[in-house]
Design a protein around this nucleic acid. Structure first.
Lengths: 352, 352
DNA sequence: TGGTATTAGTAATTCGTATTAGCAGTGTAA
DNA sequence: TTACACTGCTAATACGAATTACTAATACCA
């Protein structure tokens, strides 16, 4: 029997070569524009025609094996699964995926289980499944970052960790964001400003708290510990926080409440409505993240918009540079957020 | 020069074999428990010890190339990127990832661009990057499903499409869900029940509308077209919907409003508060999805809980069966949702 | 005229694993 | 005693592409 091109198999480079009457090497040269090889136009056309005819596609596994590389980047979910869906992370991932795809990479998502369980990060890399990682939601002494650094695995992180660790990160300046919020509120005449924030121990939280303190200082306001309320990132926390603040005596009770997330602010808005308080007139409320909700709430929520898409693009660039061993210094970058003023912090166009 | 085990390379099976004094074949047999081969305990131990000593990990690309397989499943985001974050999908993905990982698979996420652009689906599969797909958010004539069926690519979908297409899907019975809602409202004495739903053309939407109609019929209520309001899935739509319903004359104005999503219900809750309506007492409101928000809203939101994690597990099982060519019939399965009654549809424990 | 470059390729090897075919030695049933 | 099966392995090959090393033919220059 003659050698039939096994037709139930996807065509390989050799099939293309046979059809075009050249060697497999030549096909490879053409497909990769391998430098140092001259292929006349006519031959190239013949090969390209064969590729089109067979509808050939290169095999990813073969290429990865040969080049000892990977076209995958890992991303670990540590969230216990959509219990709280995280718009900011969703947006970050989306922009990261887009940037990765432009460079021919894809994102492999996995569940990281316990935050402290870094085995998966080592494992996926050692098996040659991923070339590096994107990490989000970082903290001081973050075990994932410690692990990646120790194993010399390329990564880039959305968020900082210990200052003495040198790695590629990008972050939004939470200090600046919250300072802007307080300045905005102070400019509208508020002198007693509450803050509803997360439990202690989160890097992002402490930055925003620092910005709050800085804002008060800049406005010449003496901070009052009673203005601070802490809770998990939930609507409930916002409601509980407002209840707490409303129990304070008149002369101590805040006229404005800043929240470290829109989700918490939604709780404040709800509770204010339930208490018969007119938000924007009797009470100013601000959120953080400028999520899709914010502009459609009643009243529309003043919030802080973070350049999330830019973070995604930046981190992907930094990560791929490491993987390619580009001589680009591994370093962090801090981006500025932008205050989006809406009615919840006082009617637009009206200064009191 | 003697042959040094090149130390800056990750150890391969041959390195293990050399250290254990056996052939690479034997190591492979041991690692894969290849049937039909007898390896005495002592040899096995020796090889396992070598594996431990070298901290060997098999190379994914090599294995995939040799076995002509893949340990990846694709999932395409069609959402334009976190503009609206989708808690149900997040939850679905999380449970799917967990199930996949149990079976040694991982999830590759990509951006599908236009819903009609199915090229990526073909491409990733033909390049041998993924073994199949999980598809969500389906619709009638869904081009993605048409493409996957036409190319005979394994997949499983969260949601149905054309009834005449045979493929593996799992879905939650939206008809049942909304029927339960209306029955619940009718049982509390409501005779005029509004529905705020999505624009026409979505499969999920029309099921829920059908359930609404069915619920009215079962309660002996004549439907009124004026009770129906349509809009995108947003808080804004809820607010606009309630405004519309409140413009109706007294004898036509609904005393209860069912929404096809919690997000929309949040808008209704906000608008009701703004209008001075006491939700739960003067107006009943229900959501759908039982998202994390629901129980913390004011008042807590009656909603419909869908067995999302079960869907994820089921679809992964169905998909992997196809990939393994298990003789399991390719078919769909419809799961029952559960009504979670809370205060927004009338004070708990009180029947009027 | 010889020597070197350039052009247009090809053959052979490699990446790391899975798998097929087979071999030497022992036991065992006919 | 032969045939056969089983044990405990190994050698060789294939998967599909990238890469290195090479060749044959022509061109160019002195």
């Amino acid at each position: 029997m003659a050698e039939e091109p096994r037709s139930n198999r996807r065509p390989s480079m050799s099939d293309v070569a046979r059809l075009a009457g050249v060697s497999q090497t030549t096909v490879s040269f053409i497909l990769n524009d391998t430098p140092g090889n001259s292929i006349p136009h006519e031959t190239r056309e013949r090969v390209l025609a064969a590729i089109r005819e067979l509808d050939y596609r290169p095999n990813v596994s073969a290429r990865n094996l040969r080049t000892q590389s990977t076209n995958l980047i890992g991303y670990g979910f540590d969230d216990p699964g959509g219990v709280v869906s995280h718009p900011v992370l969703d947006q970050f991932l989306y922009s990261a995926i887009l940037s990765l795809e432009e460079a021919g990479y894809h994102l492999l998502t996995f569940v990281a289980g316990q935050r402290t369980d870094t085995a998966v990060y080592e494992e996926l890399h050692r098996r040659g499944q991923v070339s590096g990682y994107l990490v989000a939601n970082t903290n001081d002494n973050d075990p994932r970052i410690a692990c990646l650094l120790a194993n010399n695995i390329p990564f880039a992180s959305f968020g900082r960790a210990n200052d003495e660790w040198a790695f590629a990160w990008a972050d939004v300046d939470g200090i600046s964001g919250m300072t802007q919020v307080v300045a905005h509120l102070a400019a509208r005449g508020h002198r007693r400003i509450g803050l509803i924030t997360w439990p202690e121990g989160s890097k992002a939280g402490s930055h925003r708290e620092e910005g709050y303190a800085e804002g008060l200082r800049a406005a010449g306001i003496a901070p009052d510990p009673a203005w601070l309320f802490r809770g998990e990132n939930s609507v409930q926390t916002g409601a509980a926080g407002l209840s707490h603040l409303l129990t304070l005596p008149d002369e101590q009770r805040p006229t404005a409440v800043a929240c470290v997330s829109d989700l918490i602010a939604v709780g404040v808005l709800n509770a204010a409505a339930a208490a018969g308080l007119a938000v924007g007139r009797e009470l100013a409320v601000t959120g953080y993240d400028d999520s899709a909700l914010a502009q459609f709430l009643h009243p529309p929520l003043t919030s802080v918009r973070q350049p999330i898409a830019a973070i995604g693009r930046h981190l992907v660039a930094a990560l791929l540079a490491q993987i390619r061993h580009d001589p680009i210094p591994v370093q962090g970058v801090l981006l500025e957020p932008e205050l989006i003023a809406r009615a919840s912090s006082g009617e637009l166009g009206i200064r009191n």
